[in-house]
């Protein structure tokens, strides 16, 4: 790195000794691998990605057209309900979005029900019980929930054992059954798209050791690579120091 003993200048990019040149080349090689491995991969991921809807979104999109036409078939209402439950089953939903989704689901359940008042009173009774229950293992609460699950599952044409059936009693609200305004209707389409369309590519769909490949690469492989790069640097530096008799 030193140009000469007279002026004592050093610069990483302008090495003047073999030692410095070798070190610079090794550092540049390692940094290049490091940069490409980290940022190169993420950029590739970004370039290849395409917005891919979940099956629930496709179902929602087709059924929503029927609902918007004003003459929905029962199947349309059921499919939309199933799709909405697919979103409500996800964690991390923004509270305002949840409100719209609950409203839409409750409204669909009401439209689908043959005994509307019975449904409303059953849901209302469950809500009251839920509000007064402090422990979710309370037997009365569990029994009421168990009663409601097949009713709602039947309305949405779901298997009572489906995950969505099990969350339905917690999301259908009696107070939201009879109104679903235009603003919420409009917001619903965007909300469904937000939660059901994802950035996917061949790198996310390919499986490796049970992982989606991109996840394995970032969460597991990159860390192995970092340890490997550090190990390589130390071994090569030691070898070089030994060869040229350099002591720390």
């Amino acid at each position: 790195m030193e140009s000469s003993q007279n002026d004592y200048h050093i610069s990483f990019f302008k090495p003047t000794t073999d030692n410095a040149r070798r070190n610079r080349n090794m550092v540049l090689q390692l940094v290049l691998i490091w940069v490409v491995a980290i940022f190169g991969f993420q950029i590739t991921l970004k370039i290849l990605e395409k917005p891919v809807p979940e099956q629930a979104y496709t179902l929602f999109e087709s059924s929503w057209k029927g609902i918007e036409s004003g003459f929905p078939a029962p199947g349309d209402l059921q499919n939309a309900g199933q799709a909405i439950l697919s979103v409500l089953g996800k964690l991390s939903i923004i509270p305002e979005h949840k409100e719209v989704l609950d409203n839409a689901l409750s409204s669909l359940a009401y439209q689908l029900s043959m005994q509307k008042e019975d449904l409303k009173s059953a849901v209302s009774a469950f809500e009251e019980l839920a509000a007064s229950t402090t422990v979710i293992t309370d037997e009365a609460y569990l029994a009421k929930k168990k009663e409601l699950i097949p009713v709602l599952a039947g309305l949405f044409d779901l298997n009572p054992m489906d995950v969505r059936s099990k969350i339905a009693p917690l999301e259908v609200k009696a107070s939201l059954m009879e109104s679903f305004d235009d603003a919420s209707r409009e917001a619903l389409v965007d909300i469904m798209g937000l939660y059901l369309i994802h950035n996917r590519s061949v790198l996310t769909d390919f499986q490796f050791l049970g992982f989606p490949f991109h996840y394995f690469y970032t969460a597991v492989f990159l860390l192995i690579l970092f340890v490997g790069l550090c190990w390589l640097y130390c071994v090569r530096t030691d070898m070089f120091h030994k060869k040229y008799g350099i002591e720390d």
Binding site: K46, K90, L91, S92, V163, L194, H198, N199, P212
Partner: peptide, 22 residues
């Protein structure tokens, strides 16, 4: 431990890169 099934609806947003919902 609360008695809920070990089950979940499809949630690709957990692992897909820079998912819009996050």
């Amino acid at each position: 431990s609360l008695g809920h099934d070990f089950a979940i609806v499809p949630s690709p947003e957990f692992a897909m890169p820079w998912d819009p919902s996050t």
